[in-house]
Design a protein around this nucleic acid. Structure first.
Lengths: 222, 222
DNA sequence: GCCTCCTTCCCCTAAAAGAGGGATTTTTTA
DNA sequence: TAAAAAATCCCTCTTTTAGGGGAAGGAGGC
């Protein structure tokens, strides 16, 4: 497939000087797609031109169509979002790809950046954050602020990612198990679970276990 | 108002002896509608014939159309789901109305029952529960099992509903505040907050604060 | 082979929560 | 208005967390 020129922008009227930004959403979770679509509907000068739940159907769309911005999930059922991103920016150099990610996948955003993405948004981003990201890419800027903020808020050797064990422990904590009960389940000492709990509280910058569970659920870590 | 989304012809075949059960969804949260639609798509013999986000557009649909089952939110922006239920069963006696509710609105389901509903589902119901409810109403049975189960699991004088104060305290707990901090905020003693916390744990039948926060978030109580 | 990260485990103290009670006052509702 | 429910507060006692600290072994990357 040859790289092709960016097609003419659509003639969607919104305001005098602005064309509507056409957004294409790619995520395999209907909840995320519809949630995002709903958020975008509340932003003036923006329209959703389509969505796809697989890499294949996304790339299929972009064979004959284009958009201004693609909100692209990193985890797709058939292919990595990173590969999809590479393909898209190769074929549509003017296309702005914004990665969609969960809190626990933040390590992948660097690879998305290398793959040509112009920014990223957490799946539970606020309307404000979405708006800022779209304004940034519309002005040919990038939007990685959230990542940096996130990084700054994290202690412990700049660890961005929860470890497998930590997530495992976190799930049991949210179930209501005590350190000792989790320890029995995982055949380790209660001290170990306590360490994991403390690291989780530290990494996610929360005050206690209650807030830890809330943050974990709201960021879809568990 | 004209029907807005009826797309499928009435004669959709699925199996030899069964017509597809036609479901109409009424909820003002797109997330709930799409989530429910997605769940229903996974059930054979069921099709979504449309949805509405307001009482008005719902009643508008049923002026010239009908369905087999209506999944009806109790809280609608323009009118109570209870009133909508009464109107629907009056105009379409064969229509099975299943109430959609959150955990903290369980007291209303009795009024939905009086209004002619044939069952209820929590908004975070599992695929199994949805399937059972649909099978029940298809067989002219009612589906209130969940309510009874719920009732059985609740202690303290069969209280089904969290009080305003309890929900208020619950929100602060999920924010990560301690009893003392919440007490300072609400100008009461820490003992009071402790009582509320204990009542919450008792009412929601969870082991500790971590599970309380999880349950509260998953049931959209906060 | 070094270094980082993960996992594991331990120490300490103080604070908070969990599990029983019980009790009073205000507010709602039947 | 009387009963029911909600909100308030207190007690004791035990267990669990929070927040410091440190440290050792192993796996994997460079």
């Amino acid at each position: 497939m040859l790289p092709q020129e960016r097609t003419e922008p659509p003639f969607t009227f919104t305001y005098l000087n602005n064309m509507a930004q056409r957004i294409f959403i790619v995520d395999d979770h209907p909840m995320v797609v519809e949630g995002m679509r709903h958020m975008l509907q509340q932003i003036t000068g923006v329209e959703v031109c389509g969505h796809a739940s697989t890499a294949r159907s996304c790339l299929g769309y972009f064979v004959k169509n284009t958009a201004d911005v693609v909100l692209l999930d990193i985890n797709l059922p058939d292919q990595s979002g990173i590969e999809v991103c590479k393909t898209l920016v190769l074929q549509h150099p003017a296309l702005k790809v914004i990665a969609l990610t969960n809190f626990d996948q933040l390590t992948y955003i660097q690879r998305m950046q290398e793959a040509g993405a112009k920014g990223y948004l957490l799946k539970n981003a606020s309307l404000d954050e979405i708006e800022h990201a779209l304004q940034a890419v519309a002005g040919n800027q990038e939007y990685w602020l959230g990542r940096d903020n996130q990084r700054d808020t994290l202690k412990d050797h700049n660890q961005l990612l929860l470890t497998r064990r930590e997530i495992e422990v976190l799930k049991w904590i949210a179930e209501g198990l005590t350190n000792q009960e989790i320890a029995d389940k995982l055949f380790v000492s209660a001290s170990t679970i306590d360490s994991h709990r403390k690291n989780l509280i530290s990494k996610l910058q929360v005050k206690n276990t209650a807030a830890l569970v809330r943050t974990a659920l709201e960021n879809k870590i568990i």
